[in-house]
Design a protein around this nucleic acid. Structure first.
Length: 497
RNA sequence: GUCCCCAUCGUCUAGUCCGGUCCAGGACACAGGCCUUUCACGCCUGCGACAGGGGUUCAAAUCCCCUUGGGGACGCCA
């Protein structure tokens, strides 16, 4: 019988959740869900200097927003420091580790020299060779010491098979005797992480490829502690357009999960996009519902080469990775309206133009209107910018549209109010009737219908582009349409004032 | 400098393990067309890649070697 899979997401709370971290969380979550296993959330907050309460909150909110649920935790690494210390003590007693009395300064100096001479920068093992008496003396003198793990000597190597990267081998002599406990008695990440993973019963460590390099060290710790190894699966990294690792420091908000939340992304669209960074199916499918993704996902489908997250920060058309946007807009135009509605509600509320009636007597109108305008939108915020005129009388007219479709035709100053009157008097305000009247007026005035149509669209919606005009007239409704058209002459006034 | 990893269209990728069906497939982006009162959507078409060089083989994107390029790790950070 196979043991239940237990994976973990272990972020350090030193900033917001970024897309790299989110992706790691997503892969862990997918694997847990897929295998009927558990996902443990563990906050690695042992770097007191940089860890913040706010960051912890942000990470948890980010995960929740994405829809990533965990089964255990959040645990906090800082609560288990005694465990880590005890483990170091045990390693010391079992002879798998030793005290190192070398001072920071000396080591720093040696490292610098090594860099200068362009040789290996490994710790030279000075204290490993220290005779027992010497050690005793130093302890008596109260000299501060760190604890280092004794890496086996000889021509052997640490070998393991990474689920993604395959067989990896790292020779013992390429691994230095690394520090596991600081001179102030505090444990280091390599130790804490391994000890926590052991305690939490982690069976699969799924993390970024940047963790690949210290996997041999952690394996050495597992072995020294005499516990069985978990399986490892390293994910390729996400780089920027210049091929540098994505980082909060370098890229700022554009790589933060909350940035996408604030810029009109649907959480599942982001998950879908992120899942495709480094993972794919043999048929290169792009769109996955949650069920489909769980069904299709496997660690074997993860590739080994790093992928580029194509930030288009200053591109007016994209502002971020075009593919991310394409996936988001795909969901905006295809999601069942009932599912889309709540996301648009959030935006309308933020803009203070939400009407409670959209959930009661105006619900049909609300859903129909979303359906009418959504094919042009890429982010949910478009509903309150480009689509604002459908929900509020307080909307701006796009200057370019105004110039091209209204101001250019001086006569519209009289024509549009005239149309307002005709629409107002209509017995039946319908798709057919409004179209009939407007075409009739065009004929009377001997102008092309397009001039009137485009003019009306611009005045009524503030946009040069949009759905078919008569649908627009229905969506906005007679009263608002008439009122807006009557005010047309003001537009000229505004220009000259 | 040392060690580890990677290498297919601009980007995400399929194909690589088990060589032939690949003069390399899909998606995004881009260009053009159809549709149309506008702009989208949708549909159609196009542009566009096996990093380079050596092997092995009847046959290589696929296997081997070298070069080049890229990334990551080398902390008493996590």
């Amino acid at each position: 019988m196979n043991k239940q899979v237990i994976v973990r997401f272990a972020p350090s709370p030193t900033g917001y959740l970024h897309i790299g971290g989110a992706r790691t969380a997503i892969f862990n979550w997918l694997y847990a869900q897929k295998t009927g296993g558990k996902l443990v959330l563990r906050i690695e907050d042992t770097d007191v200097e940089r860890s913040t309460e706010e960051s912890i909150k942000g990470i948890i909110e980010g995960l929740k927003w994405l829809g990533i649920s965990w089964d255990e935790g959040p645990y906090f690494q800082s609560q288990f420091i005694e465990d880590h210390k005890a483990a170091a003590q045990r390693l010391l007693e079992s002879g798998h580790a030793y005290r190192c009395f070398c001072t920071k300064e000396v080591l720093e100096q040696k490292r610098e020299e090594a860099y200068k001479k362009k040789t290996d920068v490994q710790y030279d093992g000075t204290c490993r060779k220290l005779p027992k008496e010497e050690v005793e003396k130093n302890i008596e003198k109260g000299l501060p010491f760190t604890i280092r793990l004794k890496v086996p000597e000889g021509n052997g190597a640490v070998r393991f098979s990474d689920i993604v990267y395959g067989d990896i081998e790292k020779k013992y002599r390429d691994i230095e005797d690394f520090v596991i406990l600081r001179s102030n008695g505090q444990p280091l990440y390599v130790l804490s992480n391994a000890v926590d993973d052991i305690r939490d019963g982690i069976t699969h460590i799924i993390r970024g490829q940047d963790g690949l390099a210290n996997t041999p060290k952690q394996i050495l710790i597992y072995q020294a502690l005499g516990v069985p190894l978990p399986k490892f699966a390293h994910m390729p990294l996400t780089l920027d357009s210049k091929k540098a690792k994505i980082s909060k420091r370098k890229h700022g908000e554009i790589v933060a999960v909350h940035f996408y939340r604030e810029h009109g992304f649907l959480p599942w669209a982001l998950v879908n996009f992120l899942a495709l960074l480094g993972w794919s199916t043999v048929d290169s499918r792009q769109i996955f519902s949650k069920e489909e993704l769980l069904d299709a996902f496997s660690l074997e489908g993860v590739n080994r080469s790093n992928s580029v997250f194509e930030i288009r920060r200053d591109d007016p058309k994209f502002f971020t990775d075009p593919k991310a946007l394409a996936i988001n807009s795909h969901y905006i135009k295809t999601l069942p309206l009932e599912e889309l509605a709540p996301y648009v509600k959030i935006e309308l509320e933020k803009a203070k133009i939400w009407d409670e009636a959209y959930e009661t007597e105006k619900r049909d109108w609300y859903l129909q209107t979303l359906d009418l305008i959504r094919s042009r939108y890429h982010v949910t915020t478009d509903f309150i910018t480009l689509g604002r005129a459908y929900f509020s009388d307080d909307y701006d007219l796009d200057p370019k549209a105004l110039e091209k479709n209204v101001l250019k035709h001086e006569d519209l100053k009289e024509w549009l109010p005239l149309i307002a009157e005709r629409l107002d008097k209509l017995d039946e305000y319908s798709l057919e009737e409004t179209e009939r009247v407007i075409r009739e007026v065009a004929e009377e005035l001997t102008v092309k219908p397009g001039v009137l149509i485009n003019g009306i669209r611009t005045v009524v919606t503030g946009q040069a582009v949009g759905p078919g005009l008569f649908d627009v007239l229905m969506a906005i409704g007679r009263d608002r349409v008439v009122a807006r058209l009557r005010k047309t002459p003001i537009l000229w006034g505004q220009v000259y004032s």
